[in-house]
Write a protein that binds this DNA or RNA. Structure first.
Lengths: 224, 224
DNA sequence: ACCTGAACACCGTTCAAGT
DNA sequence: ACCTGAACACCGTTCAAGT
């Protein structure tokens, strides 16, 4: 029956993304169906495919939003004192991450459940959002390891990220044989303490080249 | 047309499990379909449901086999010298685990992809198999931490397991932004070294009750 | 230009009917 | 006793047809 309502293209896309997010948050990514989404938004199946190439495309865009929420959540949980010790900041980040995985369980799972079968074009900024999450961890790590040590810092950030992910993900499906459910926080905190202690020992005993040769050409930061 | 072939019930179940394993190994768990499995085994859809309650039941039983294979693979990779240092044994375990996740990628993913929606009865021994995998990690940890320290050892085993899982799982979907694909081994080895160094430091500085009071009643081991 | 909904090729699961 | 396959209620995706 032609134009069903007065949604602009941008509004329609936002409406569909909002509704899709709500469905995933409520019932998990498996419950997100083109027909269900259409019904709940008052449009038809075809319209979903006018806006998104396929369901994977839709899910990836929901995930991009989730990453933004996660980043915001983690940033907000940082200690307000800018000179808080790095260990405290990392503990705050880890605790906030654990809280996010339990509070937004299904949305968080959607980030990792979906294996890219066909080539799903990641929305612009998706990779940058992941880098931004790593940056939250790397800042305190720089204080712990000192300047330089790029390689060690990069490895540590990945190990911490992966350890957190593994602990949260395995505990969700009881694969850690945890005694009490709330001991996840304890486990995460202890993992963090143990790992950081090891980092300090290893940084002291096997130092990387502490300050690499200063960049020769140009004066711009080579970060990007 | 009645009995289609001369398979005993046990043979039929084995045949279906073998075929299902092959399908998952080749194309991932999403490719495992009741109709496809029926076609490839020469039976009808209904027969699949005579043997398994539902697809989740089938998948869980494939997973139980995968756990057994994983355990065998890890055991075989242990250094032959029984007095090999614990760090070397843990490194061998970790390297074997990484190799398993890449060589049996799809089967390994099936272990974690499936969230238990309804209550899927785990096959007998499933939990025991997970405990057996933990035991492989805990033995060397006991040497590192010394006797006692049950709580610390349990936490360390879970942290190591989760860290390994997280590193392998995130690297599969490029979520670690790894530079070169084979640097996963390097990352895992360095994670292990850092974490173990921290464990030693923390065990020395904040000792648990080193030897808990010996069990009072009975003489049986209280392990189970 | 935008939206619809029938159509196609699939699913998981059930169960009356066959041998 | 074992096996079949039609049937039901769903899927993702496409696209001619409508307004």
């Amino acid at each position: 029956m032609g134009r069903r309502s007065d949604h602009s293209p941008a509004e329609l896309k936002g409406l569909l993304l909002d509704r899709a997010t709500a469905i995933i948050a409520a019932d998990g990514v498996a419950a997100l169906t083109a027909r269900r989404l259409a019904t709940q938004t008052g449009y038809s199946v075809g319209t979903v495919y006018n806006v998104f190439a396929h369901l994977d495309d839709l899910i990836v865009q929901v995930n991009a939003r989730t990453l933004a929420h996660l980043h915001h959540h983690l940033t907000a949980a940082q200690p307000r004192a800018p000179d808080a010790p790095p260990d405290a900041r990392l503990h705050a980040l880890a605790a906030a991450y654990v809280a996010f995985t339990t509070r937004s369980r299904h949305l968080w799972n959607a980030l990792f459940d979906h294996r890219p079968t066909r080539e799903v074009a990641l929305p612009p900024g998706y990779a940058a959002q992941i880098v931004a999450l790593f940056a939250l961890i790397e800042a305190p790590l720089t204080e712990i390891l000192g300047p330089g040590h790029e390689a060690a810092r990069a490895r540590a950030a990945r190990a911490l990220w992966a350890g957190l992910h593994g602990l949260c993900s395995l505990s969700q499906t009881d694969k850690l044989a945890l005694i009490s459910p709330d001991s996840l926080d304890v486990l995460v905190a202890s993992f963090l303490d143990d790992y950081l202690a090891g980092l300090r020992v290893r940084a002291a005993t096997a130092p990387d080249p502490p300050t690499p040769a200063p960049p020769r050409r140009g004066s711009k930061s080579p970060q990007f």
